[in-house]
């Protein structure tokens, strides 16, 4: 058996990502969520305008109704996935200090998880009438 000429594993060579560590996954997800965001944003804005000036029980009932709740959940999940990648790109582009960059990338994930799940929880709560 001849010794290998380099220490890269066959798996790493097949994946072909090199120092980038990942491929076009983020690029693609950003576009898929962008396409999803267009109709979802339009419908969400219409829902928000229709809820203007209504009292709290009416808002709670409409926001919690099945169709509106599902649309809002799709809207929340899609924008959260989209903005997580967007903010990550902004951080990677402008923050060059490695420690600060790592901290901000983690904070980005925490922000999206907390705000996203809080919004999802709010919709589910209205929908299930808890």
């Amino acid at each position: 058996m001849t010794p290998p000429k380099h220490i890269r594993t066959p798996l790493a060579r097949v994946r072909g990502f090199g120092a980038a560590k990942s491929g076009t996954g983020h690029f693609w997800l950003q576009r898929v969520t962008a396409i999803a965001n267009i109709p979802l944003t339009i419908v969400a804005v219409i829902i928000m305008i229709m809820l203007l000036g209504r009292n709290q029980p009416a808002v709670a009932q409409i926001l919690g109704s099945s169709t509106v709740a599902i649309i809002m959940l799709l809207f929340i999940v899609s924008i959260m996935a989209h903005m997580r990648i967007g903010m990550q790109v902004v951080i990677e582009d402008y923050v060059h200090d490695e420690t600060a960059k790592l901290g901000l990338l983690i904070a980005n994930n925490f922000f999206v998880a907390i705000v996203g799940l809080t919004a999802v929880y709010g919709i589910l709560k209205l929908s299930f009438g808890l």
Binding site: Q56, P57, A60, M83, V90, V115, A119, G122, L126
Partner: peptide, 25 residues
């Protein structure tokens, strides 16, 4: 995009405030 990112705080607040009259007020 950055503005919309932080603006989702407002969205989450609005949704969660709708659960009760005091919060919504």
């Amino acid at each position: 995009g950055i503005g919309l990112y932080f603006g989702t705080l407002l969205l989450a607040w609005w949704i969660n405030s709708a659960a009760g009259p005091n919060g919504y007020a």
